[in-house]
Amino acid sequence: QANKPWHEIGRDAKPAEIKAWNIDVRPDFKGLPKGSGSVKLGEQVWEAQCASCHGVFGESNEVFTPIVGGTTKEDIQRGRVKNLEEGSNYPQRTTMMKVATISTLWDYINRAMPWNNPKSLKVEEVYGVLAYILNLADVVPEDFVLSDQNIAEVQQRMPNRNGMVFYEPLWRVDGRGDVQNVACMRDCPVQVSIRSVLPEHARDAHGNIREQNRVIGPVRGADTTR
């Protein structure tokens, strides 16, 4: 099949260029640079560059949801986080509660953290600070050195490693979701009473809605300060 007339537009990427940008790390660890970092090194990095936002123990809810918390030794064994089950009273869904794939954390810290200075960490610092987070979550011991060699083993200790389900109907455009209504038109079955109303304190929580509507038209914004 003949080349399209626009075939020559653009130019070949050079190996050094691909290397500079080809930073993604997959769940099978393809893309992961060789290297290692200790919990100890990680602690230094964390305290110097991460703790201000995420808290000394990854517990802070100030700038983002806590990174650490809510997982147990039992979770690490099962690979399922109990606090994600219904009825759990744990106040937050922390990163460590949700993330199933350790590669996700390596990749993300490497590309995006520290938030205000992304892509500034060295490879061993990424290993180290991830080791530190994992240690905070009791996934690895205090004297652990995380490396490309043992990361697949650590993956087997991720608290929520068995917690993800691939749900194809919401991945494929031609799928069909699990919830569907019927188009009843007359005397449809509904409860007469209202099930939920806007709480009084929420009425004005977004500022005065009067000032968020046009000054003309079929309606005005309600004065929610009153």
Binding site: A13, K14, A16, E17, A20, W21, W115, N116, N117, P118, K119, S120
Partner: peptide, 17 residues
């Protein structure tokens, strides 16, 4: 020869907030 500067040296918007 290695490649373009704008690729090899990450710009501020890729390394900042």
């Amino acid at each position: 020869a290695e490649g373009e500067d704008v690729i090899l040296n990450l710009p501020e918007h890729t390394t900042g907030l």
